[in-house]
């Protein structure tokens, strides 16, 4: 490999993100902010990486579902009568 090509490759390595870093930035940008440079690097990476595009898409869906399940109204569990009695007894005993 010529010296110039080597230098060029090294430069590219610095610009091109790995999938590890790309997925990190996807998560990080969801809960915080990333710099404009990182944002650009991320879109460049996504343009050429099918797997990370899938990861980003699936992450969006997972986040939406996480939002849904944290709302008590979307949970289908309920206290049984037995559990309710137990709790009432605990409150009664403690209130006396």
């Amino acid at each position: 490999m010529s010296k110039m090509k080597k230098t060029l490759m090294k430069g590219m390595d610095k610009v091109m993100l790995s999938c590890d870093t790309a997925t990190y930035l996807i998560i990080r940008s969801e809960y915080g902010t990333i710099s404009p440079v990182k944002k650009m690097q991320l879109s460049m990476h996504l343009a050429g990486c099918k797997y990370c595009r899938r990861f980003a898409e699936q992450s969006k869906y997972i986040s939406a579902q996480l939002k849904k399940i944290k709302d008590p109204a979307n949970q289908s569990v309920a206290l049984t009568d037995e559990q309710k009695e137990k709790l009432k007894t605990a409150i009664d005993t403690s209130a006396q």
Partner: peptide, 20 residues
């Protein structure tokens, strides 16, 4: 009143906690 808490709030709190 506390005696009514389980009936009034029990399921809501249970679902809130279970989700977490």
């Amino acid at each position: 009143q506390p005696a009514q808490w389980v009936n009034e709030y029990g399921d809501f709190l249970y679902m809130y906690a279970y989700a977490r």
